[in-house]
Amino acid sequence: MTNPNGIVTQGQFSFLPALTDAQITAQIKYALGKGWALSVEYTDDPHPRNTYWEMFGAPMFDLKDPAGILMEINNCRKTFPHHYIRVMAFSSVRGVESPTMSYIVNRPKHEPGFGLVRQETDGRNIRYTIHAYATDKPEGERY
């Protein structure tokens, strides 16, 4: 990828150096302190509008131990070392009821990025399709 970081920059902290386990733990504590449930999700389709990454288990509504949650993150990293993995936090408070945090904690070593397909239509109009190069291969064989 040719953006300044050379990586997919989704999530809260993609412009910072990869977070250490200690830094991840601090973010988990912040979320737990707010009463949010944490969840681990992974994918090998990083399209910006691919909303539903695979869940590495349901959100951990009842797990309040940061070390336990970090263990789940590391289990996911071991199982899917070449996938994108993100940690998400969910608030169930009325008026929010939506994700409140999302940050990437694992990514493929090489990120080929996306092509932009321009379909020329009426006049000067263009219809745009963003295409992840990796998704030319089947799921699980992409990175």
Binding site: M1, P48, G113, L116, Y128
Partner: peptide
């Protein structure tokens, strides 16, 4: 509008973000 949307989509492809 035409030039801006080319810029938006190209930047989205360059970063993987909306």
């Amino acid at each position: 509008f035409l030039y801006c949307m080319d810029a938006v989509n190209k930047a989205s492809a360059a970063t993987g973000e909306v």
